[in-house]
Write a protein that binds this DNA or RNA. Structure first.
Length: 306
RNA sequence: GCUGGGAUAGCGAAGUGGUCAAACGCAUUAGACUGUAAAUCUAACGGCUUACGCCUUCGUAGGUUCGAGUCCUACUCCCAGCA
């Protein structure tokens, strides 16, 4: 039997991945599976660049599947994505992964497995920490706990609290990191845009958001009781705007124009940096094919599907 | 016109005689990252470069000093107050 084939369109934010994905989906009767860690949330629309009109009559998956405030992780995404892929193949559709959350795409392409080996866990007299407890600790304390657990994670970045917390959790539960080659083949295409154009698109996008009512969107999330801490974790624009709105509420007298412009600038720069991080991520995978335009992407896809 | 304050790397901003190519923040660039990933972390960032090496910098031009971003003089520009 011929190997099943999947197309993935990746790239930095604001690079036009969705348009490419939609165009390809139309051509090959595909359906889109979004690989975007923020578009999974309902009501996070403007700031996630969730433009559902762009899809036309192309079917999409894994967008608007959670409520704000819920937690959603890579493995949540991976499980669902795998189910959808099986379903699409059974209906003879081409799965098209589109998104900028590199880790999600990688987990699917490389076939991440979660195997818990209980016997590895140390005896119960060692105190086990919960995520919330760990989050309250300083880096020094985390490092100490981590060392005590004797993790075998040699590449662990000890300055990175998130990574240290995960290493502790892994050691406590006996999780082992494993991969299993998936039974499908993936062509990964990255949108390759000159840096200045990418930055210009990001800046323009931010301007548009505010015209489209981004402030109202975030204000309503806050009004409806979404935890500001959750918004902070969501990051980038939601973090920056929520912070700004909360501060301006306290000072009353409406929004300070200068502070508003400063906030917007901060937002743009934060997204530039994010795009850079995404590029760094994608560059580490040599199998990714970088395309400067949709035409060359189409050519690659044609070759791949042959 | 007078008086006071100021001019520092792409921007903001420290630095008041030596250890200053110059803190720090921002921007920018590169990198790491398997259950928070739009998160989190690391590094570079005047030039040449393998460099703890050399060269050129702190408005401009001179001066004092063994030594000046730091002191003196003149000039240019900016800001504030007074006329």
């Amino acid at each position: 039997m011929e190997k099943r084939k999947i197309i993935a369109i990746v790239g930095p934010t604001a690079s036009g991945k969705t348009d490419w994905g939609v165009s390809i989906a139309k051509k090959y009767q595909g359906e889109i599976i979004s690989a975007d860690s923020r578009q999974v949330y309902r009501q996070l629309d403007i700031g996630t660049g969730k433009d559902l009109n762009d899809y036309g009559n192309v079917k999409y998956h894994l967008i608007d599947i959670c409520d704000p405030g819920e937690s959603f992780t890579m493995f949540d995404w991976l499980k669902r994505a795998r189910l959808i892929i099986d379903n699409l193949f059974s209906r003879d559709k081409t799965p098209i992964i589109v998104g900028g959350t590199g880790l999600y795409v990688q987990s699917l392409v490389e076939g991440f497995q979660l195997v818990t080996e209980k016997f590895k866990v140390q005896s119960s007299n060692v105190k086990k920490f919960k995520r919330e407890e760990l989050e309250g600790k300083t880096l020094k304390e985390l490092q100490r706990i981590c060392l005590r657990l004797k993790t075998d994670d040699l590449q662990l970045d000890f300055n990175n609290p998130h990574r240290v917390i995960r290493a502790i959790e892994r050691a406590q539960s006996g999780e082992i990191v494993k991969k299993k080659k998936p039974d499908f083949e993936v062509l990964q295409i990255a949108v390759d845009l000159p840096r200045e154009i990418l930055y210009r698109r990001i800046d323009q996008r931010v301007e548009n958001w505010f015209e489209e009512g981004f402030i109202t969107e975030v204000q309503e999330l806050l009004n409806f009781g979404v935890d500001p801490k959750w918004l902070e974790k969501i990051g980038l624009e939601y973090r920056i705007l929520a912070e700004f709105l909360l501060k301006n509420q306290r000072t009353e007298g409406g929004i300070n124009k200068i502070e508003f412009e400063e906030m917007k600038a901060r937002m743009k720069f934060a997204i530039h940096a994010y795009a850079r991080r995404q590029l760094t991520w994608f560059r580490r995978f040599p199998e990714i094919v970088w395309c400067k335009n949709l035409q060359s992407a189409r050519k690659e896809i044609k070759k791949f599907l042959k």
